[in-house]
Amino acid sequence: MKRWLYIIILGAILFVPGFILPRFDVKAVTASVAVKPEVLFELELGGTAFPISNTLFTSWIVMLLIILFAIAATRKMSLVPGGLQNVLEMIIEAIYGLCENAAGATRAKKFFPIVATIFLFVLVSNWLGLIPGFGPIGIIPVDAKHPAPEGIATFPLSHSLEEFFGPKHEEHHEYVLAPFVRSPSTDLNLTIGLALISMIMTQIFGMQALGVVKYWFVRFIMVGKFGEFFKSLAQGKPKFGLIFMGLLDLFVGVLEFISEVSKILSFTFRLFGNIFAGEVVLLVMTFLFVAAPFIFYWFELFVGFIQAFVFALLTLIFMTIATTAHGAEEHH
């Protein structure tokens, strides 16, 4: 009974924006579908002003939420878990189990913190962007040159917020709504950052496991066949086929290197594309049909989870492959 009540309440929450939003005249403000994150305010640090984007601001909220959750869950650790501790344990146990299955017990210890942090951070940031009402609440920069557009209600609050948050940005020539909260996953800076962390850590773990020289010579600079050729030459029975094989290996090594680099790109744009597109779809659906966002919300929740899972899982798999002795052969 209680469960049905929750579902109805959630349904109502998701339903309401579809009813209400189209009733307002929002023509005057371009809907926020810019790839570039909006600047909320500038932070003065040691004389230089750092522009703080809403995605950066939100990633701090995400971190705060995760850390608060972790603190709440581990506040009273006991061998017989209850409440939040149970939830946290379940999550950690599931991710750790995944690591153990993929990489074995010893490597799991190494990979687990990165994989788990990626999963949690991406998951929370994906889902945070979906909270209804977060998108439409924000700042529309107004000043003397750009007065508040017709049809938009300006609260005195928005002015004071402007003053509070510092100077306005001249590049906003259109009246663009800068939401306070925007999923960090819709910011390429985050996705590139995570992709770089994932790949760099993968390479570092690989070099740690196989040794720096061996790692590079096994995966990217495969000159083993030339060595064999010179050995056979020294023995007086040169096998010229080995030269051809060596050249092939060199080419494969180059491809391997390119594929490593392209992983960064695929990591970056997979997460960004899925989440950004999801938010655009939700925005469009809100104005399209009353019940549409309801369906797409469930879908985007699912996508948000899957993308977090995929990012973490691929990181885990790449790390496992990189630390496996004959990684190059198994990997395409």
Partner: peptide
């Protein structure tokens, strides 16, 4: 700046 900020965040 933002890229580094996100990496530091992580």
């Amino acid at each position: 700046t933002w890229l580094l900020a996100q990496i530091i965040n992580f």
